[in-house]
């Protein structure tokens, strides 16, 4: 976790309410608690590794992991481009199709009745268990990884957007209907703005899902990517390298998460979750 201090500042600086001035010392005071806790944790870890003489293939100290991170920097960079690309493509498909299907299902009750059961049924099938199939079907290239990333991250986006589109109050719907609008207008003026906070909640949940999908896809068959590199490090019993890869992987996931969070702030500055972000606002 040594390499994440910068990420955390980025993270928490964006947690405050809108009204809060950017350089309010309070943010940094709040930051003090977790930073202190993490420092104590890392310090104890390092001390334990040095004093106990535990072999470094079992548990390397934070300093060794940091060194490994520098040592593998170029390789990890190459691999994270591969994985990042898979994650991004799969995630983008989820966002686009998740949003689109949600609109379709709410737009037409026929589609709702016929598609919804299939989506819910598909939820009962473990996507991770299905992953190997895609290797059989799609081969060793980019496609199976993107597909698994997409399949795993699709549902949270779809289901929370659908819930959001349906969460418009009856009075609000009646009000807009009294203005004799087209269905498109009902969506543009009322349903979509109401759904946006739900959509972003789902989109945030979907981020680690997409990463998980890409990694599992890589584990099935690949010769590049961070998931592949993880197994490589495991095989060589290079535990410090394994930790370094884990950190890079988490970094990829967190960068995407922060980007989505920033977009959320831009898109719905009026919403409670943005005004007083507690961080723990995942809606299940």
């Amino acid at each position: 976790m040594a390499g994440t201090a910068a990420t955390e500042i980025l993270f928490f600086a964006s947690e405050g309410p809108m009204a809060r001035p950017r350089w309010n010392p309070e943010i940094y005071l709040d930051l003090l608690y977790p930073v202190a806790a993490i420092s104590v944790f890392l310090g104890t870890w390092e001390a334990y590794v040095r004093l106990s003489g535990i072999p470094n293939y079992i548990l390397p100290g934070p300093s060794e992991i940091l060194l490994s991170l520098f040592e593998y920097a170029a390789t990890l960079y190459e691999h994270s481009l591969v994985t990042g690309y898979e994650v991004l493509l799969g995630y983008a498909c989820s966002i686009v199709l998740g949003g689109l299907f949600a609109v379709m299902v709410v737009w037409s009750s026929t589609l709702d009745k016929s598609l919804m059961p299939l989506f819910l049924f598909s939820q009962t099938v473990s996507k991770i268990a299905v992953a190997p199939l895609f290797v059989v079907w799609l081969g060793f290239g980019l496609a199976p990884k993107v597909l698994v990333a997409f399949l795993i991250s699709f549902f949270p986006v779809f289901i929370s957007t659908t819930a959001g589109l349906k969460s418009v109050e009856t009075e609000m719907l009646e009000l807009i209907r009294s203005m004799s609008p087209s269905t498109l207008q009902v969506f543009r003026k009322v349903r979509i703005p109401t759904a946006l906070p739900h959509f972003f909640a789902g989109a945030k949940v979907a981020v680690p899902f997409a990463t998980v999908g890409a990694i599992v896809g890589e584990w099935m068959a690949s010769d590049s990517g961070l998931g592949y590199h993880l197994l490589l490090m495991q095989g060589e019993l290079d535990t410090a390298g394994l930790f370094a890869t884990l950190l890079t992987l988490s970094f990829v996931s967190i960068v995407l998460y922060v980007v989505v969070m920033r977009l959320e702030r831009l898109a719905i500055p009026w919403h409670v979750s943005v005004r007083q972000e507690t961080g723990l606002n995942m809606t299940w």
Partner: peptide, 8 residues
């Protein structure tokens, strides 16, 4: 919670 835990 943003870490893809499967990778552990």
């Amino acid at each position: 919670q943003t870490i893809p835990y499967i990778s552990v």
